[in-house]
Design a protein around this nucleic acid. Structure first.
Length: 205
DNA sequence: CTACCGATTATCT
DNA sequence: GATAATCGGTAGT
């Protein structure tokens, strides 16, 4: 599967957030010298801007924590939330903007599910990666991934081309107060309608 | 320096 | 539905 390109992320953040639905988040692990691939179809995203978006980490300008959001597009932005969990974003904004990122809130596991279950200490498939903290735990993503190039096909964390979503739904973002009126959360209208329609056959992970 | 609280989740009732 | 867990950014003393 081909990696997404730098140019893909050099567009309006909300546009990229929608276009990321159906693409594949790929994590390469080395388990005792052997490469293992964990992968899932991105099913839910949220767009975060900069000075115009009070819910965004970038709202008050660059700081030590959020500087990645102002940097190279297609890079990974990982932060710690509630002192316990990690959230993974990909930097994306248009040439007219100065910062922005897309939060990956949920994926549909398609490869390496057994390892994800071990990482999550969970067995129920449906609870494996249906939240931003869960995605990072399942894939073993922490702050050391901050600043990684997700458009590089040999990165241990990258985003590859996937399926074309049937229908996308927009709604309000989760867990924020300021800027809560914006419909910047996007999800596949029906995960299973895509996954059960045979389009999974296009994967050869 | 201290106090508050968050782009969350698991585990209760 | 309510709440604890737990770190670091941010604002205020």
């Amino acid at each position: 599967m081909e990696c997404t390109t730098r140019g893909f992320y050099e567009a309006e953040t909300t546009f990229v957030a929608r276009k990321l639905l159906g693409k594949v988040l790929v994590r390469r692990l080395d388990v005792s010298g052997r490469p293992k691939i964990l992968a899932g179809i991105i099913t839910e995203t949220e767009a975060y801007g900069s000075y115009e978006d009070p819910a965004s980490h970038a709202f008050r300008g660059p700081t030590k924590r959020n500087s990645t959001m102002f940097g190279t597009r297609g890079f990974c932005y990982v932060y710690l939330i509630y002192g316990i969990y990690h959230c993974v974003n990909v930097v994306a904004y248009s040439d007219e903007a100065i910062a922005g990122a897309v939060l990956i809130r949920s994926i549909f596991p398609v490869n390496g599910i057994a390892i994800m279950k071990v990482n999550r200490e969970a067995s129920k498939f449906t609870d494996l990666t249906n939240g931003p903290g869960k995605v990072c735990t399942a894939l073993g993503i922490n702050r050391s991934f901050n600043g990684m190039d997700m458009t590089f096909d040999r990165s241990s964390l990258r985003i590859e081309e996937g399926i074309s979503p049937v229908k996308i739904e927009a709604s309000k973002r989760v867990g924020i107060t300021a800027g809560s009126e914006l419909y910047h959360r996007y999800m596949l209208f029906d995960d299973l309608s895509c996954l059960h329609s045979g389009k999974l056959m296009r994967f050869s992970l």
